[in-house]
């Protein structure tokens, strides 16, 4: 229970406060997820390094029209940002039903992505949009796709002495994107399945497709077979149904059995595609 709280004033100081070998030293941003882990006793930190005073918050567009969001930007700020609403409406819409207002007020996008709970909504959406994060460490910065962040349940490719500093989302361009999730208990439950699609329609056919699901698997998973079926031809829902779950290892949990979750993936995939198509018109 007792731990030290470090509040560094610079990124360099923050990284120096982390420990490459000691998993009990953890960065904390909004803390909404870490506090839950601490209360449940699954995390017993010796030191928490607060990122609140690093000045890593802010939203702007970059030279290539990309969205640049500082890692310490709250989810609520992103949700309400005019830049995001106009340029990446799927992100604002997704945030509206992510946890609740209080959590979104406090939780940051960097913390959200670093937590890597497979039930979270943004990772599949950002993966489908081709977003990248910048990760800073003692040796400098590296940039990786959001899709490569999660490596398993609550596991990421971020090293213990590294921090996410920036999220970059490429411009939507001609793509239309949708995210649908399905809860199986109360409406505010963690989703049983989340489906994110980003589709570039050309008339009735699709020029480019990106489809990523969350919640049903231990990390967000790209449905490559579905993407192949979608690209360059007319939609065939029977083909789609089969492709939707063929490559997936879905595990049953408290939200539903594996078989039921596969059904939800098939249904919500179709619905997400329809929603994206409706937006493209």
């Amino acid at each position: 229970m007792p731990f030290e709280l470090a509040e560094p004033r610079s990124l360099r100081e923050a990284i120096a406060s982390l420990d490459a070998k000691d998993p009990s030293v953890r960065p904390i941003s909004g803390g909404t997820a870490l506090m839950l882990m601490m209360k449940a006793g699954v995390l017993r930190p010796s030191r928490l390094v607060s990122l609140g005073k690093l000045g890593l918050a802010g939203i702007r567009t970059g030279p290539g029209g990309e969205l640049r969001v500082g890692a310490m930007t709250s989810l609520r700020t992103i949700e309400k940002s005019e830049i995001v609403r106009k340029g990446w409406p799927v992100i604002a819409r997704t945030l509206r039903t992510l946890a609740n207002v209080r959590v979104r007020n406090v939780a940051t996008v960097g913390g959200h992505l670093a937590h890597a709970d497979p039930h979270m909504d943004l990772p599949p959406v950002l993966s489908a949009l081709g977003a990248r994060v910048t990760i800073a460490g003692a040796a400098g910065e590296r940039s990786i796709p959001v899709e490569e962040l999660g490596t398993g349940y609550l596991e990421t490719s971020i090293r213990l002495d590294e921090l996410i500093t920036l999220l970059e989302v490429p411009p939507l361009g001609g793509r239309s994107a949708a995210y649908l999730k399905c809860t199986t208990r109360s409406a505010d439950d963690w989703p049983a399945v989340g489906v994110a699609v980003s589709l570039d329609f050309q008339g009735d056919s699709i020029r480019e497709a990106s489809v990523v699901i969350g919640a049903a698997t231990d990390k967000p998973t790209r449905l490559a077979a579905v993407e192949r079926i979608l690209v360059g031809r007319k939609l065939d829902e029977n083909l789609l149904d089969e492709a939707a779950t063929q490559e997936l290892s879905v595990e049953g949990d408290l939200h539903g059995s594996a078989a039921y979750k596969k059904q939800l993936i098939r249904v919500y995939l179709r619905r997400a595609i329809h929603e994206a198509r409706a937006q493209s018109r």
């Binding site: 109360s186 409406a187 505010d188």
Partner: peptide
């Protein structure tokens, strides 16, 4: 994990 009815229900 034990959900009770909220506003959206």
């Amino acid at each position: 994990e034990y959900k009770i009815p909220g506003f959206l229900d």
